[in-house]
Structures are given as C-alpha cells and as structure tokens.
C-alpha cells in the first residue's frame, strides 16, 4: 500500500482575501511498511498534508497515487481509501461519544457494514493492541483517564484495520509514562502487523526514538527528508524554522567541541551511552 504524492499544491480560500497556500509542490513517496515521522512548526502544513492521505481534502493541483492508483481519477473509490488509511486526529478523545468503550470502538467497523460479531471481534483486537484493559470494556468512555480515553480513540481507528495509520500528535498532554506506553504500543503494532505508520509530533526526542525516516515541513514545502541521523545533523537549519534536535544531539556536539572524539550524529540516549562509554 504505497503512497506517492506528486507535486501537491493546496490553497485555502482561493479567490478571497484570505487565500493561503498551505502546500507548495510537495512530492513524497512512502513505500508500504515504513514508520515515518513528520515534523514542522505550527502552520507549516503538516496537518493539511496528512488530510490528503485519506482524501479528506483534495489537492488544488498535483496527483496522489495510493497503491499505484490515481486517487483523483474519475470513479476512484474514496470509501475504500478511507478504510485503508486511518487518521487519528489531535485530541481524538474529543470524538468519543458512545455509551460504553466497546460500542465506541465498534462504530468504525459497523460503518464498514460488518456483522455485529465481526465488529466486536475487531474492536476487542484493537483494544488489546493499544493495551486497554479488558475489565473496562463496558465502562462509559467519559469516566476514563486521559491516557485511557486516548487509547480507546486510537483503537476506534485500528478496528477498521487500516493499512496505513496516521497519527497527529498522539501524545500531546499525556504524562511521560502514558506517552511512552502509547508510542511503544504503536511501535509494536507497526512491527507485528507491518502497517505503514505516519507520526506527526512536536517532540523531537520521541521522533528520534521511534521512526525510520523524518520528513520536515516548512512553510508548506518539504525541507528535509531522511533518516533521523541525517535530518538532525541539520540542527542549525532546524532551529531557524522553529524546530530543534533532541537534547542528546546537542550534548554530543558540546562534547565534541570540548575535545571528545564522539560521533555527533547520535539521536537517542542508548546510542549516546554507548558512544560516550567508548571515549572515556
């Protein structure tokens, strides 16, 4: 289920005084099964970009191929695209509405026209995949803690069995342990199911720890695209566009300046420990 965006442009409020070009000539290819991070300052075009992926918005100009098929061609089945690309919005728990957890997670598959048994089976699987405890399935989703609500909301998208999972800041507002648990579970899901995962985040530390590839957006264009090591080696340019490198990367640079012969491309704690231990 590859994704290929070719010269995508998107303009909000065309023809009015509020015209704003949110995306400029963006071309991206994501082969099936990658774990991709998207970073960029507020207003850089990240959210506009990901809403193209399941067809919520249509490019003003450019072509989007999903699994080799032109999504914008006449007669393309948008419904099937939305079943295959699951989008988890920011603060997804605001969208919970059912009387109990299990019914809420069943809502997606129910709309896909599946039988009640199949819906429940998928809902249970999805809740299990996000580490939601079984004893709370019949609770009202509104009585749960923030972290648990977020899990239920993510499970609601997973229950539709998407091939591509897109998450817009899934850990915003969660405590550190909740953040790690959710990201660990997503990483596990990615590994076990082989699905493509696209993670939008403002936390450079999280991005560095989990993804294979980072796409940096700036003012509607793609600024960098590469492995975390490649992208964070441009830490000075990243600062100029409102971003940063993980704190460990700065530590390594500072050590190098003081004469330590360390590799400055380090982006995670584990790598840094190993690298520093080598030179001491």
């Amino acid at each position: 289920m590859s994704i290929k965006l070719e010269n995508i442009n998107y303009v909000y409020s065309e023809g009015t005084a509020y015209r704003k070009q949110a995306l400029k000539d963006v071309s991206i290819e994501i082969p099936h099964g990658q774990f991709v991070g998207i970073i960029g300052h507020t207003g850089s075009g990240k959210s506009t970009l990901i809403q193209h992926l399941n067809g919520l918005i249509k490019a003003t100009d450019g072509v989007y191929y999903f699994n080799g098929e032109n999504v914008y061609a006449d007669g393309y089945n948008m419904k099937s695209l939305r079943n295959q690309v699951g989008l988890v919005f920011q603060y997804p728990e605001h969208q919970l509405f059912e009387i109990d957890v299990l019914s809420d997670v069943c809502f997606g598959p129910k709309n896909q026209g599946l039988s009640k048994e199949e819906c429940e089976k998928r809902a249970r699987e999805a809740l299990e995949a996000v580490g939601f405890p079984g004893k709370f399935y019949s609770q009202s989703p509104f009585d749960l803690s923030g972290g648990q609500k977020r899990r239920v909301a993510i499970a609601g998208v997973l229950a539709m069995r998407p091939k591509v999972l897109v998450l817009d800041e899934p850990t915003a507002g969660l405590d550190p342990a909740g953040r790690d648990e959710i990201l660990d579970q997503i990483a596990k899901l990615h590994k076990e199911s082989g699905m493509t995962v696209i993670l939008v985040s403002h936390s450079m530390e999280d991005i560095a720890k989990y993804v294979d590839r980072i796409i940096v957006m700036n003012q509607g264009s793609k600024l960098f695209d590469g492995t975390p090591k490649e992208v964070f080696s441009h830490y000075k340019e990243l600062e100029n566009v409102g971003l940063a490198a993980p704190q460990v990367t700065y530590i390594m640079h500072a050590l190098k300046e003081r004469g330590f012969r360390v590799d400055t491309s380090v982006t995670t704690i584990d790598e840094a420990v190993e690298e520093i231990a080598k030179v001491l």
Binding site: A177, Q247, I269, A272, V273, I276, L280
Partner: peptide, 20 residues
C-alpha cells in the same frame, strides 16, 4: 510516579549505571 527526567539527567544516570 509515571514521570521522567530531562535527557541530560537520564544520560548521566545511564552512564552512572555503567560505572562512570
């Protein structure tokens, strides 16, 4: 308590565990 420490602190702590 489900909290964390800054990355510099965590790195120092991991190095301490390695005997630094």
């Amino acid at each position: 308590y489900r909290l964390d420490v800054p990355q510099a602190t965590l790195l120092a702590y991991e190095l301490q565990k390695k005997g630094v």
